[in-house]
């Protein structure tokens, strides 16, 4: 395939979905989707539940495999369905590509048997081979950045939901991803702590150059963080435009209907 050489010679896209489909049994979640994310781009994915937003993130993180199509990260094929699935990459190469992506989950998924600090240190030490002391310094720095400098020794069960989610953000940052995926990161939180988590992500957006893909039901946040908003329905992209356009003058009737329903 000469795809790689051509896309590598131009500035490669951070992530690209080429004719990707995903179904669970008879139920099609993602329907022949094409999507391109440029480096450092901030993209919000909005839409009704079951529209496939989360599945896009899970496909990109390789938590799910596509049935059809290809997913590329910085020009390299990360996963593919159909015929492409047969020729899987060697594990080392595959992980080198996957390592460019990080993810924060709705349910935090912190490791309950490790302290906050250990949660953040674990992957740099074990996966990247970082020296313990260096990883500890990095972890402390990141915990400070998410406002949890004193909570390093606490176990997840001793932290509030908002604090756990901020540890999870620090944990994902410790792997220095170039694309960060945020999957409904405030949906499992009590209303009073949502703000502290959103603030952390808001600051990140200003301080870093990572590409960000954000799935959220918080429309204010979706608008604030993004340079581009994608409205999805039934596994398809319905509208893909700037936040101003989508929220002020949506062109598609279904986008309008969705935004009106949310406002009410």
């Amino acid at each position: 395939m000469d795809h790689q050489s051509t896309s590598a010679s131009q500035a490669p896209l951070a992530a690209e979905f080429v004719n990707v489909s995903k179904s669970f049994g008879a139920f099609t979640i993602i329907d022949d989707l094409n999507l391109q994310i440029r480096p450092s781009e901030r993209v919000s994915l909005i839409g009704p539940s079951g529209s496939g937003k989360t599945t896009i993130l899970r496909l990109l993180m390789t938590l799910e495999r596509p049935n059809e199509g290809e997913i590329k990260v910085f020009g390299d094929v990360l996963s593919a369905g159909g015929e492409g699935a047969a020729k899987a990459r060697p594990d080392r190469e595959f992980r080198a590509i996957r390592g460019k992506i990080g993810m924060v989950f709705q349910q935090f998924n912190l490791f309950p048997h490790m302290t906050a600090l250990e949660n953040v240190m674990e992957a740099p030490v074990q996966v990247l081979g970082t020296q313990r002391q260096e990883a500890r310094d990095l972890a402390e720095c990141l915990l400070k950045r998410v406002g949890l400098a004193e909570k390093g020794a606490s176990y997840p069960s001793q932290l509030s939901g908002g604090q756990q989610q901020r540890v999870a953000i620090a944990r994902a940052l410790a792997m220095k991803p170039q694309i960060m995926l945020f999957d409904e990161i405030t949906s499992a939180l009590d209303p009073e702590v949502i703000g502290e988590v959103l603030e952390v992500v808001h600051n990140l957006a200003h301080e870093t150059k990572m590409a960000m893909l954000v799935v959220t039901h918080e429309m204010g946040f979706a608008r604030d963080i993004a340079d581009r908003v994608i409205f999805m329905e039934r596994g398809k992209i319905v509208e893909d435009a700037s936040p101003g356009e989508i929220f002020n003058s949506p062109r598609n009737d279904r986008t309008k209907a969705f935004l009106n329903a949310i406002k009410r």
Binding site: M61, R95, G102, M103, F105, N109, H113, A123, Q126, V127
Partner: peptide
Amino acid sequence: GQHDATIALNMPTSLSYRRIIIPQ
């Protein structure tokens, strides 16, 4: 979700089992 987190942190399966899944 624990499996998902180990994948998101780019852990190989053996490491994921040894450090995260089996201890729990």
